[in-house]
Deep mutational scan, measured.
Amino acid sequence: DAPDEFRDPLMDTLMTDPVRLPSGTIMDRSIILRHLLNSPTDPFNRQTLTESMLEPVPELKEQIQAWMR
């Protein structure tokens, strides 16, 4: 099983494109984008959230890719 820090906190699946929300939570980009289609909010604190506020986490993405090899 993947380490917890590699798993999306909402869907508990392996992240492939991790992004940091303004709240500091790291999620998979595809999952948070799907959530934003229904509700333009951070799913953990209900603060306003837009796609432009998502910050890529390239170092975590590299760690996940290395773990998958």
Rank of each mutant, 00 (worst) to 15 (best):
R29W: 08
D1Y: 14
L10T: 08
E5W: 13
T41N: 08
D1F: 14
L33G: 04
L21M: 05
T25M: 15
M68Q: 10
P22L: 04
Q47R: 10
K61F: 09
D28Y: 03
V57L: 12
F44I: 06
Q65Y: 12
G24Y: 02
L49S: 02
P9I: 08
T50S: 12
L49R: 00
I31H: 09
V19A: 01
M68L: 15
T16E: 12
T48W: 15
I64S: 00
P58Q: 10
F6G: 02
S23D: 07
T25F: 15
E51D: 08
P18S: 01
R20P: 01
E51I: 13
H35V: 08
L54S: 00
S23P: 01
D8A: 02
E62A: 15
I31D: 03
D42F: 04
M27S: 03
T13Y: 07
L49E: 00
S30W: 13
P22R: 01
D12E: 09
G24F: 04
L54I: 07
P18T: 01
D8P: 02
P58C: 08
P18F: 03
T48I: 12
F44T: 05
N38E: 13
D4Q: 15
T50A: 09
T41E: 08
T48A: 14
E59F: 10
D8L: 04
I32F: 02
K61T: 06
M15F: 02
T25D: 05
M11Q: 10
K61Q: 10
A2T: 12
M15P: 00
E5F: 12
P43N: 03
P58T: 10
L36I: 09
R20E: 03
L36C: 06
D1Q: 14
D1I: 15
D42R: 09
M27T: 04
P56I: 06
E51Q: 09
V57H: 07
T41F: 13
R69I: 13
P3I: 05
S39A: 08
R69V: 12
N38M: 13
T41C: 11
P3N: 05
Q65H: 13
L10G: 03
V19H: 03
L60W: 03
R20S: 05
L33V: 11
D17S: 05
S52W: 12
I26N: 02
K61R: 13
P18I: 03
S23A: 05
S30F: 11
R69Y: 11
P22H: 05
I32C: 07
T48F: 15
T16P: 04
S39E: 11
M27E: 02
R69Q: 14
F6A: 01
E59M: 10
D28W: 06
T25N: 11
L36T: 01
D28I: 07
D4E: 14
I26E: 02
W67R: 01
K61W: 11
M68P: 03
G24P: 01
L21Q: 01
E59W: 15
L37T: 12
P40Y: 09
E59Y: 13
I31P: 02
S23I: 02
Q47H: 11
Q47F: 08
P43R: 01
L54D: 03
L10R: 03
R20Q: 06
L10Y: 09
V19F: 03
Q47N: 10
M68N: 08
D17K: 02
N38K: 13
G24V: 03
T25S: 09
E55M: 13
V57C: 13
R20W: 06
M53F: 05
E62Y: 13
E5G: 10
L33P: 00
M27H: 05
P18N: 01
L10C: 12
I64E: 01
T13A: 06
D8Y: 03
S52P: 08
M53V: 06
P43A: 04
